[in-house]
Design a protein around this nucleic acid. Structure first.
Lengths: 209, 209, 209, 209
DNA sequence: TATGAATGAGAATTCATTCAT
DNA sequence: AATGAATGAATTCTCATTCAT
């Protein structure tokens, strides 16, 4: 089902990811650098992509999808909703470098660079609702959770997804910004978030609107 | 009390803001364009700033401070916490263009461009706690709200600030991404958020940890 | 045995020489002008050199070596020392423009521009003794002359090389400055210099120190 | 008799000298730097000079004259020709930094920069024969020496001046290039030069041409 | 198909000179 | 007369893209 990628195409995607993970400034990546890392000729890249923008945008799209798929698979292994949330929060702590990339990617989507425009265009083409695939993961996990129960109204679904996403997102931000002093404080906030999310889901579901 | 700005310096700051509001890609702003908009000679800008990066970073810093001050003043005029939150959410809807700038600014802080590094450095120098001044506004509003009551532990404060910030932030994101279909849905979600935030504050305060 | 030069590299070297011969001010040569003359794109020059300074410095180095090799070959064809000296003095008269370049090059070595620093660095790397290759030519001619005879002490060698160099050099300067009135005067001075140099060599060799 | 200089004019001349002595690259001196050092406003300099070139050229001319006057006075105090020559050679050793400036100045005269052109023009206007005032000093010293004796032909005078100048000049060059190993070698070469010059003067005078 | 040498448009920055005060 | 803020022409260098091999 999933699209097949040509070897050189994939090499480009991986090279961009590596550079991104090394902290390169996305707006100053050069084609030379990317193709050098990908181990292919500069001209060759233009056989596969229309230009630099497309290269980088598709690389992010590719890696974003890959990440979301893996994230969803990991979440599914957890037994209940509370642990699913906790899994994500813990994963964030354990893979700080990776999280950093995700945040930068998400952030990038809101700037007005040509790369962002390309990614947004790709997302639109793929008819992926919501801002980023991460949102989709949350929605899917939520739907899995509510399976068998009555689905809430779309308003409430949007609110819940937003609410969950925002908390997880901000926890990541706080981690990155080194807001916390010590593991204890981190654990305390993690507990508050997981419990907060669970409680909110229950509340919203029990609300009569 | 507030720092005085030289006319040409301010002209640069405003020109950057205007360009930003017009949707320019911050990472591709040119000095020529900025000074042209500011109505000053290209060389003149270099009398006030060490280079392009400093120009843009200080412009964001200047405009960010201005925005936060105005936001705080607006919030203070509201009578209770629920309405304060609602004020922000409504303001976001009414000033979509402006919000967009704020989001892009906040996002920019997490990329690895040289401008971001400059802004982060400026924030550090000014000893502004937290990631961005917006966080400070929330903390201040929260402290005002809790005035006279017993302050919760720092863990809980961090959690509350994060939680509020993230929901407001995500509402803004959703607005920008045109997630909502119609004013009704928007209003419903707005209500859920305001109530959700209020409830959470009360809950956390009543928690025994 | 001699190093091979890439076509575009050599094109740069020749373009710099032509500009130099046309009387361009070396310290104000522009990359645009050089590449235009070399018939290559501006960016191409940067594929071969790290910057303007390296371009010009290496051009001088290349042309200086070429000149010294040709000079030495010309000198070798003359039958005795007196005629060797005269050959150089006459050559200087006949190739005023070329001499002018050599003088300017030699002079340039003593200014503090970045190009000079580059050339001095190149000379040092190549382990060429003495200030400029021209000095080497003199030393070699002198050694050829003394072949079979007892070599004088290093003090005396230094003195002789200096003395010869300085006279030839100053004759060239005088030519350039148009000190002489008419060919007669020029010829007279030329004779005095050639004889003066020969006499001095003999004297020094016969000195007991 | 000597021209009077306005205070600000002289301040410029001295500032240029100081910068030159500090090893500044003459072709990259800026008006800002010169006037800053001179302690006057940038605009003020343009009240006295038509532009940067004139500033620097006149500064060199002024300082060159000053130097030559002092050199001549120092030479005159020595009792005979041999000691006069030796005085100059020793002075060169003792004032290496200053000599360096003189060499750079002399060298500069042969480049094709606009400053050089200006200096050459100034020299021409002042009807100063020969390439640089230093030449004049030599000629004057030589004429003093020959006072009372029959002056040689102009050919011979030119040759003698050239010869003396060239040796002194090259000794300085050798000093600067650190050609010598130890004071002994330096002293030996100094002796050879002084004696060589004296002998040559005598020879030329006794020549029947 | 794959390549990378060649290109030149375009960017940041500098600095001599002007001119209003 | 003295100033220095303002200017913009001119310069160096980068890098996305092309195209001959």
């Amino acid at each position: 089902m999933s699209k097949e990628y040509l070897p050189k195409e994939r090499a480009i995607y991986q090279a961009v990811l590596v550079l991104f993970e090394e902290g390169a400034d996305i707006n100053n990546l050069t084609v030379s650098e990317i193709t050098r890392r990908a181990g292919i000729g500069k001209g060759t890249a233009y056989e596969y992509f229309s230009g630099k923008e497309e290269m980088i945008a598709k690389a992010f799209f590719y890696n974003g999808e890959l990440f979301c798929r893996q994230l969803y698979e990991g979440i599914c292994k957890e037994k209940d909703f509370y642990h699913k949330v906790n899994y994500v929060l813990l994963a964030m702590e354990q893979q700080v470098a990776r999280m950093d990339c995700i945040f930068r990617l998400i952030h990038m989507l809101s700037d007005n660079s040509s790369v962002s425009r390309w990614i947004r265009e790709l997302l639109r083409q793929k008819k992926i609702s919501g801002e980023v695939p991460v949102i989709d993961v949350i929605r899917r996990v939520l739907q899995d959770e509510l399976d068998g129960r009555e689905l809430p109204s779309e308003d409430k679904m949007i609110y819940l997804v937003l609410s969950i996403y925002s908390k997880v997102f901000c926890y990541g931000m706080a981690l990155k910004e080194e807001t916390f002093e010590g593991e204890e404080q981190r654990e305390a906030v993690r507990g508050l978030i997981s419990r907060g999310i669970c409680r909110e889901v229950e509340e919203i579901l029990s609300l009569e609107l």
